[in-house]
């Protein structure tokens, strides 16, 4: 595993200027999200008792979780390319773990810059909200983050499984990754009940950036709210089963 990462990293820092410029350009993603939230708060004022720092906390949770998943599971994100070129057959006959090979097939070290800034923003929001006084908050935040990574990784694996059938990548899967991330950047509390329910039972991002935060901000005292992030395990179970099922029925795309 580390061999793969080291290899990709070394080959990409060969072009130093390009590496730095690309790393900078990756930061815009987070800058955009923060600028949008700050502008909206500047124009509309505080929404439904959710202050700007609470908003930044849920934004950074979702974004950082997404970035980590995209960074480590990039191979599944671009999996349709492997299928399309017929290279998947090569992976199958190698005496190496299949999943490890898919993970190592594509890796973008320039995206590392996002992780650092996302992490910085999360810590900033965490401190500004005064959550550092209670030790339990550290664990809840960490749990949310890990579950967010699992959720987005599962969606990427699901998308990869779909490309077994479609051969080409489908733009539609972006709705589940970029789309849910976009909506997750806004605090769930501002939306209507129906929207919240949709994102609880369909794609459970509310379980990451809404229910646990309610507990942390003392808006709810029921400890069950801490356990909601575990709902993502259902999604990951479904997508892993689907991937394995598709793998069994895969008939080479020819090369």
């Amino acid at each position: 595993m580390f061999k793969y990462i080291k290899m990709h990293f070394k080959s990409s820092i060969e072009y130093k200027v390009s590496f730095i410029l690309l790393s900078i350009s990756q930061l815009f993603n987070l800058i955009f999200s923060v600028v949008v939230i700050l502008s909206l708060y500047n124009k509309f004022g505080v929404l439904k008792n959710i202050n700007i720092y609470q908003c930044l906390l849920s934004l950074s949770l979702i974004d950082l979780g997404f970035y980590i998943a995209e960074f480590t599971f990039r191979g599944f994100d671009t999996f349709h390319k492997i299928i399309k070129k017929g290279n998947f057959d090569i992976l199958l006959i190698r005496p190496e773990n299949l999943y490890l090979q898919i993970l190592g097939s594509e890796f973008e070290p320039t995206k590392f810059s996002r992780l650092l800034t996302g992490f910085g923003l999360l810590i900033y929001a965490f401190i500004k909200n005064g959550l550092y006084t209670n030790i339990a908050n550290y664990f809840i935040t960490l749990l949310c983050l890990v579950c967010c990574v699992i959720l987005y990784a599962s969606i990427l694996i699901f998308g990869a499984a779909v490309s077994f059938y479609t051969i080409d990548g489908i733009e539609f899967i972006n709705i589940f990754t970029y789309g849910t991330r976009e909506i997750g950047e806004y605090p769930m509390g501002i939306f209507s009940k129906r929207v919240i329910l949709l994102f609880t039972f369909f794609i459970p991002i509310a379980c990451i950036n809404y229910y646990p935060l309610l507990y942390m901000f003392n808006k709810e005292s029921n400890p069950l709210f801490i356990l909601t992030p575990f709902a993502v395990l259902i999604v990951s179970l479904i997508s892993i089963l689907f991937f394995n099922f598709s793998l069994k029925h895969y008939q080479s795309s020819g090369s």
Binding site: Y15, V17, S18, I20, L21, L22, I24, S25, F28, F32
Partner: peptide, 11 residues
């Protein structure tokens, strides 16, 4: 290495 400059300016 046009990729970086391209991406920064369009962003």
């Amino acid at each position: 290495n046009h990729k970086g400059i391209f991406s920064i300016s369009t962003n």
